[in-house]
Simulated scan of single mutants.
Amino acid sequence: MVDYSNRRTMMVDTQVRPSDVTKFPIIDAMLSVPREVYVPDQLREAAYMGEHVVLSADRVVLEPRTFAKMLEVLDVQPDHTVLDLGCGLGYSTAVLARLADFVAGVEDDEELANEAQSILSEYGVDNAAVMAGDLTEGAAKSGPYDIIIAQGAVEEIPATILDQLRDGGRIAAIFAEGSLGVVRVGYKSNGVVSWRFAFNATAPTLSGFKKAAAFSL
């Protein structure tokens, strides 16, 4: 019998805390949410390793360090409403649900979305919902949001997503730049989002978030 609770503690102690993640609610959430149930059964052994867990060609469960650092810079509060883009099988949604008032997860793979909702329900996460749909459309009906986070890389973020961010809200994403990537946090004020560098990270680019190819003669 694998002791996953011990692996969770090791993950936090060796991957999360050393990465300057100090907010207690984040530490507590990552110690509490069983990451292994939000990955395919055959990948449970890899759930707590310091790398992305691959769910499909463009979908991963972000490595613990990257995800935790994104949460740290976003500073999610208990009264916040969160939009979680590309949530896979729901791990990020479950962690966010322990930090926020409500989380809307969006997943464009209907099978993943349905399974994510099933797992969340099974584990009593009742302040979150996962919807199947185009990631670039978000979930406007549940918005506007105080926090938006993308669980993968983007090349650009469409106005349809930025419009769902409340004035005073924050958005974080990994921006793909060649073979490298950087996490940036956007702060919305008076309808305009200004971006700031947070740290370096990489991930597969989410479907729909690649720049349109420039037309040339």
Rank of each mutant, 00 (worst) to 15 (best):
V21Q: 00
P64V: 07
F24D: 12
A128F: 04
A139Q: 14
L135A: 08
R65D: 06
K69Q: 15
V125M: 09
Q15R: 08
L31M: 15
T93Y: 04
A94D: 02
K69C: 11
V54E: 11
A104F: 06
A139G: 08
T66W: 00
S56E: 10
E115M: 13
F102P: 00
D134H: 11
T22K: 12
E122Y: 04
E111Y: 05
A57V: 05
D109Y: 11
D84E: 05
E36W: 07
V60T: 13
T136K: 11
L74T: 11
A29E: 04
L43R: 08
P40C: 09
V21M: 00
E72P: 08
Q117A: 06
L96R: 03
A104K: 06
D28G: 01
V39R: 02
L74G: 06
R98Q: 14
E51S: 13
K141F: 09
V103Y: 01
V21N: 00
G50C: 07
V125D: 03
S142F: 15
V60Q: 06
Y48Q: 08
R35C: 07
E111N: 13
P78S: 14
R44Q: 15
A47C: 10
A94F: 03
L71K: 04
R17N: 02
V125F: 12
A29Y: 03
G90Q: 03
A97M: 04
L135C: 10
G138P: 07
A128H: 03
G50L: 07
V73T: 12
G105Q: 03
N127M: 08
P78I: 08
N127W: 05
E36P: 00
T22W: 06
L43K: 14
V106Y: 00
E122D: 11
V76P: 00
D109K: 12
R44C: 05
V95H: 01
A97R: 03
P64S: 09
A46K: 15
M30T: 01
L85R: 03
T22G: 12
D58V: 07
F67H: 12
L71D: 09
Y123W: 15
Y91S: 08
S121Y: 06
G138T: 12
D79T: 15
G143D: 10
P34S: 04
T81V: 12
V33F: 06
R35G: 02
R98W: 00
L55T: 08
Q15E: 06
L71R: 03
P34E: 13
A68V: 04
A97T: 05
A57Y: 11
D20R: 13
V125S: 01
R35V: 00
E107M: 12
L120P: 01
D84Y: 02
P78L: 11
V16A: 01
V21C: 01
E111T: 14
L55I: 09
A46H: 14
N127P: 05
R17M: 13
A57L: 12
